[in-house]
Design a protein around this nucleic acid. Structure first.
Lengths: 195, 195
DNA sequence: TCAATTGTTGACCCATGGGACAATTTTTAG
DNA sequence: CTAAAAATTGTCCCATGGGTCAACAATTGA
């Protein structure tokens, strides 16, 4: 029946604990002991389920990314028009549960490791590729073909920039301001949406 | 005469070494010994000139920021029109010597520490405030007053997003692509520049 | 029921790195 | 020229944290 059920539960708990500790402590401060304690377990158990620290945080990043992906998919499923698909992608990225300073801190810490951790780099690439593909499929119906790539890069970069700014807590950026900024961009860059 | 001349020279060497080590090793990997070695000195000397690791990297961030600021100022001094001022700000941020993956790595590592290092947070705030002020002073002549803030936030966020993307080396972003993206934004967002 | 598997713990090891410090050399100023 | 100040080094200390391991507990399935 349930193969390794406890094992899967434990692994999920630890991935989540890892991500949560990351939010407050950063990569260097996120020690195995803190993660274990945060999950209500002992340090030994962490290394029982994950080969090493890198692997643990790799899975933490995977899970956080999966949650974002699900949010996008769910909204995309409800979207009917290209315009709604575009809105779905953007609004998912700014959902309240994700667009939080502490969550951004964790992402920032992970991104900072990307240059030295090929596994994290791979995940990051997948994230960007999916975002690009989602955007292009919506933009294809709203813009001339030769403008889609530029607009897609503009949208992702803007999202990333706003996330970064939230993580740095510079200028008191709020969710509403970020969404307004995205709408401002679309209104000017994708004329088919205006009006 | 020269008060503590050697001291200033040494401090600059160490700040630069710190930033360079940061590019390759990240914050955790950038040990005092590596920084010292990179500067051709001993570990002891680092702690002779800087109270501790945080202070060293705080000064490294200050210096990197000062270089960027100088580049902006120099270009701004040559700019005659608001349009040229806008271009000056943007082009300085994408100068070849700055817009390098390794440089972005170092910035990313510093940004990731911002939430836990008030000193770094202060520097970051100054950077953003200066950028905003520079942009607003140029945009004031190109846009209706009630649109300036939005455009300024859009431009900085876009710049940050493109920098982040360069640091993550996702999608093979080049300097030219980044500049094209900025021009694309301005062309659509600031009609006074079109044509 | 009972072996085998799986989960869990805490103790231990050890490399690392930040930081203190005393000792030594070099520079500066009177 | 010389004493004070500054620069520099290498050594030492110690906390930390990643990772190993042996022992123990629980679960499972036959």
């Amino acid at each position: 029946m349930r193969l390794t059920r406890i094992s899967e539960i434990r692994r999920r708990e630890l991935r989540r604990a890892a991500f949560e500790v990351l939010q407050k402590e950063g990569m260097a401060g996120a020690t195995l002991e803190k993660v274990a304690m945060h999950a209500g377990a002992s340090k030994g158990i962490v290394l029982h389920y994950f080969a090493n620290k890198q692997e643990l945080f790799e899975h933490a990043m995977r899970e956080a990314n999966a949650a974002l992906k699900e949010a996008v998919v769910e909204r995309l499923n409800r979207a009917r028009t290209p315009r709604e698909r575009l809105e779905a992608i953007i609004e998912a990225n700014f959902e309240e549960r994700f667009f939080q300073p502490s969550v951004c801190h964790a992402w920032l810490s992970l991104c900072a490791e990307v240059p030295r951790e090929p596994q994290l780099a791979r995940i990051q690439k997948v994230i960007h590729a999916r975002m690009r593909s989602n955007l292009l499929s919506a933009l294809a119906h709203l813009l001339p073909e030769d403008e889609c790539e530029a607009a897609a890069l503009g949208i992702t970069s803007l999202i990333d920039g706003l996330w970064l700014r939230l993580g740095l807590q510079s200028g008191g950026l709020t969710r509403e301001m970020a969404l307004a900024q995205m709408r401002d961009y679309l209104a000017h860059r994708v004329p088919a949406l205006a009006g």
